[in-house]
Design a protein around this nucleic acid. Structure first.
Lengths: 253, 253
DNA sequence: CCACCGTCAAGAGCAGTGTTCTCGAAAGTT
DNA sequence: AACTTTCGAGAACACTGCTCTTGACGGTGG
């Protein structure tokens, strides 16, 4: 049988992958700023100049790693969404949020690469990255949509809070068929999620609260509930259900 | 009259200040990672080695800048708190939050220096930085205390959400005489505030929402109100009052 | 007044970096 | 077999943070 893809390009792709792998290790160890092309080349028995056959510059390499990071995060979120129970929207949201936090904790350097200052010279992004990030927010939107449709939260309260100008901005965004209030709700939980993860990851929380999964759960459930809950919510009960399904899906690996 | 402080140390302090000033400019222009000791020395007609008489290393310089940034932010917040009307706790909180956002927008590199990944090798911090950051959170606590005492929000709802373990952690924190629920409330608005500012500053918001003061106001008021509001709140009215006092205090400069 | 001594700045130098160039060897194509 | 494209090596340039040594200046004590 013949190879549909030329042998030349195949081995080229493998070296590209090897470069990215080695670079990924260096990045995970010493941080993004300390990523050295020469060190990467040295680690894989190459000359620094040879790397330039595969990446135009150091920034290009980091950009590629950043794109992979975006993709990895999106994969994780989608997987969490699909693995979560479809009939319990509250825990589904909590599990998605948890997987986001877990990913950030397991891939700290990638997280800073994505959400840190200036995403590593991602200037020339021909919607390559954009697609990946939209996959992530899509998961968030689906969670929100489910929660609203299930009648768990009422967007009426939040809708009343929106100023005309802000509502116009949300309508201009319009990346879904949900209304402006739903988009505002997404932004709300989104900022809360990112805020807590970032503060935690960068050691800006007081010691007793650092690395606290409980604080995260409480804030994430609360973020959803406070949008406009109908009736009281037993936080502990939600957490217990989430823990249960998580053990169920994580155990048989 | 004689100088109480020796002339020697005085001129030394001025050169230290000059180094910090020049470094600050370079930092503001090309970012923190691109700060070059040689460039700083070149800009002020010095030799690179001479700078080592004043700063042990490049990290030491950046740490010094970071400390100043912390101090600057704390000053800004305290000033905003004092300038705000004491009888309108809701707008007082909004004005403090706004000043935080404004500071972040006017000092982007300093903000990333503070809240970005690994605060620039701030390993040896003998509570020097710690004091400054506590000044900042103190302002937040005072806002929360005022709002609670004024009866604007009810901590009872939030208190019911806390799990025993989480309540224990908050009590262990105990950096104020307010209860665990109040501290949880502070963390809530704190994460929301930081999350939105960080996302905005690092260009992670969709274009229609980028750099939106309206979104910020809505989220900040909402964060406070949703903790446990008594009766409906007219967001537009709060914003109008805040705008008024802001024009009042900003105009006569 | 002079000698002293701590402080300062300069200069050279080391090890490292990203990047660009040229050149020879290998691989694939005709 | 000849030609072309691709690849890697090596040298070189302009940087970087940092260290060490060598003088020079200035305030202070004899």
């Amino acid at each position: 049988m013949t190879h549909p893809v030329p042998r030349r390009e195949r081995i080229r792709q493998t070296t590209i992958d090897e470069i990215k792998t080695v670079a990924h290790e260096q990045l995970a160890e010493h941080g993004a700023a300390a990523l050295s092309l020469r060190a990467v080349a040295r680690a894989m028995g190459m000359t620094p100049s040879a790397i330039y056959r595969y990446f135009d510059s150091r920034s290009a390499l980091i950009s590629a790693l950043a794109r992979d990071a975006y993709s990895s995060l999106a994969d994780t979120l989608e997987a969490a969404f699909l693995a979560a129970p479809a009939d319990d929207q509250m825990v589904r949201w909590l599990l998605v949020a948890r997987s986001h936090r877990r990913w950030a904790k397991t891939h700290p350097t990638e997280y800073t690469l994505i959400f840190g200052p200036r995403p590593a010279d991602l200037t020339g992004r021909p919607t390559a990255v954009q697609n990946e990030v939209e996959r992530s927010v899509a998961v968030l939107f689906r969670c929100m949509q489910e929660v609203v449709e299930a009648g768990i939260v009422d967007l009426g309260v939040l809708d009343a809070e929106l100023s005309p100008g802000l509502r116009a901005r949300f309508q201009e965004w319009d990346c879904t068929d949900l209304g402006p209030a739903a988009e505002a709700a997404c932004m709300l939980v989104w900022t809360q999620l990112h805020g807590l993860i970032a503060l935690d990851l960068f050691d800006h929380l007081p010691p007793p609260l650092a690395d606290s999964a409980e604080l995260f759960d409480q804030q994430m459930i609360g973020a959803l509930v406070r949008i406009g809950h109908r009736g009281p919510v037993d936080f502990a009960e939600v957490i217990r259900r989430a823990d249960l399904t998580e053990q169920h899906t994580l155990a048989p690996t």
